[in-house]
């Protein structure tokens, strides 16, 4: 199994850390992983994206022009990456701020209203975990228990008290996923 994913949105949304948690979860189930961020003069409010690959085999290129899954968190990213989803692939987006919805008919499209859900719960920082939960419902490539193990491994001990809150957000995302087509 190889899953090639692009996660794209605004800087500050937790795009890069979502990718990192996903990569760590892959390691927890003995997979090969790669994580390559866009880096540059980008900052909070600018665009940010990361390519994450999880595979049972040695990963060749960390840089891709086509993806199995695109996780899209703003309009610019949708414009940029919709065409780059492989036919039969998956596109997951948060409708917040999206004025032009995806138009492809040869891919699976899912929606997660994560910005609103996170705000309604008064925990805007769990936004990216809600999105990740939704993605794992659409494509269960890593087990929730491995996400938990990944968080335990990657976070310093003093932050471990945050893990239950993040796992709850993940489960909430799983529940709230909407299948568009």
């Amino acid at each position: 199994m190889t899953e090639e994913i692009i996660i794209a949105g605004f800087g500050g949304q937790g795009v890069l850390s979502m990718g990192k948690i996903l990569a760590y979860s892959g390691i927890m189930q003995n997979q090969e992983v790669s994580w390559f961020p866009s880096y540059g003069p980008e900052m909070r409010g600018g665009t940010a994206n990361v390519t994450v690959i999880l595979s049972d085999e040695r990963i060749s290129s960390p840089v891709l022009n086509q993806f199995d899954t695109a996780i899209i968190l703003n309009q610019q990213s949708l414009d940029k990456f919709e065409d780059k989803v492989k036919p039969g692939g998956t596109l997951l987006f948060d409708p917040n701020g999206i004025i032009k919805e995806p138009t492809r008919t040869d891919i699976k499209i899912y929606k997660i209203d994560a910005t609103r859900i996170a705000a309604d719960n008064g925990q805007p920082k769990t936004f990216n975990m809600i999105v990740l939960g939704a993605f794992l419902k659409a494509k269960p490539i890593v087990k929730i228990e491995n996400v938990k193990k990944g968080l335990e491994k990657s976070l310093p001990e003093r932050h471990h008290k945050m893990i239950p809150m993040n796992i709850e957000a993940l489960i909430l995302g799983e529940k709230e996923l909407i299948e568009v087509q």
Binding site: E32, S34, W35, F36, P37, Y39, P62, V63
Partner: peptide, 10 residues
């Protein structure tokens, strides 16, 4: 190069 420097792997 900047890719190998910036990317994360196992």
């Amino acid at each position: 190069d900047g890719v190998i420097g910036q990317m994360m792997e196992k």
